[in-house]
Amino acid sequence: MRIAVLSDVHGNRVALEAVVEHLRRANPDVVVNLGDLVSGPFDPAGCADLLMSLGHETIAGNHERQLLESGTGASDAFARPRLTEAHFKWIAGLPATLTLADGEVFACHGSPAGGDLEYMLEDVRSGRATLAPEDAILGKLTGIGDARVVLCGHTHIPRVAYVRDVLIVNPGSVGMPAYSDDMPVAHVIESGAPHARYALLEKLSSGWSVDLRAVPYDFGLAARQAEQAGRYEVSYSLRTGRMPAE
């Protein structure tokens, strides 16, 4: 069985189209999208239309919840007036988690135990993202049932970890390679490259293999969309995979 995993498109249809084309060659059995779908300074409506047409297994991230709850963050505020009633109906019907492969794979946006805002694998207390201690990760696995694979997004950092016989995979972000946030402390997330990210998992006789993929696309076009929305820090990240120095 081959499972393709996408996350954190953030309305970047240009990046999404490149990943979709790449997926055709990968030919997975199922594609799962881990949320944060359309909130971003790009093409929210066009991205929603494409995602709806693809019919991927899709869950809601924190930005879907924030869109429905009238959150005032810049990405949600940009997306909300550009979405239609049909888009909101689709978003409202998305589940928070999914199980795949007869319960062997558990998919969430943040963490199984902490919800859509909790970082599953990253520790940001230093102001930058590092791999969290094993015990801290273990405490976030409550609620996965008998799953041996956990798929998570939210932090935009492609990463694979193995904790007490559980394989944890973050595919990285399709559409936004870097960002900064003030919660839980001020920190910067940087993937280090502008490529659109996704992961391909395959079940082998010896266990699950993971291929973290980085797909090139027209970074400049997406960056110009962000500039037109007045999001110059996002534009910089789309060209570099890093946040601008303060």
Rank of each mutant, 00 (worst) to 15 (best):
A79Y: 00
C47S: 03
V188G: 10
A226F: 05
P158T: 15
A45C: 13
S70Y: 14
H22T: 10
G71R: 00
V163N: 01
V169N: 02
L221Q: 14
V169G: 04
E64T: 02
D76K: 03
C108P: 00
R239E: 15
G139A: 11
G46E: 03
E202C: 02
A178S: 14
R82N: 08
S209K: 12
R125W: 13
R242G: 12
P244I: 06
A196S: 14
F106R: 02
V160G: 04
I144Y: 05
D182G: 11
R13I: 11
R2I: 11
D36K: 08
P28C: 06
S111T: 07
E64P: 00
R242I: 01
C47A: 03
P41A: 07
Y119E: 08
T99F: 13
V5Y: 05
V185D: 09
L121T: 09
A214L: 12
G145Y: 09
I91Q: 01
I91M: 01
H63K: 14
G207D: 07
W208Y: 12
L141D: 07
P158L: 15
M176W: 15
I59G: 00
R239K: 12
G40K: 07
A77R: 13
V234I: 15
P41C: 06
E227M: 11
A132R: 00
V31F: 02
L100I: 08
H63E: 14
D181Y: 13
L23H: 13
G127A: 10
A45L: 14
L141P: 01
G127I: 04
A15S: 12
S39R: 07
G46R: 02
L23K: 14
P95V: 03
V150I: 15
M1I: 06
H109N: 10
V14R: 00
G230W: 12
P44R: 09
A186L: 10
G175T: 06
D8C: 13
V234A: 14
R164Y: 09
M176V: 13
P244A: 06
T240Q: 15
R80G: 01
E233K: 12
G127C: 09
H195C: 00
D102T: 13
A86P: 09
T72C: 01
S75N: 09
G115C: 05
G103W: 07
L238E: 06
Q225L: 13
A113R: 05
F88T: 03
R159M: 13
A74N: 06
G40N: 08
V38P: 01
G230E: 15
H63D: 05
R13Y: 06
A196Y: 04
A245R: 13
R197K: 11
I137T: 01
Y236W: 09
R24V: 09
K140I: 10
V215C: 12
T72Y: 02
L121R: 06
G220C: 11
G61K: 05
G11R: 06
D116Y: 07
H22F: 09
M243G: 11
H63T: 04
H154I: 10
A147R: 08
E118Y: 00
E57K: 15
Y217M: 08
G127V: 05
S237L: 03
S205L: 12
A86T: 08
E233G: 12
P177G: 10
A186K: 12
H195N: 12
A196I: 08
G145L: 09
L138Y: 05
A101T: 13
Y236D: 10
D29Y: 03
A26T: 14
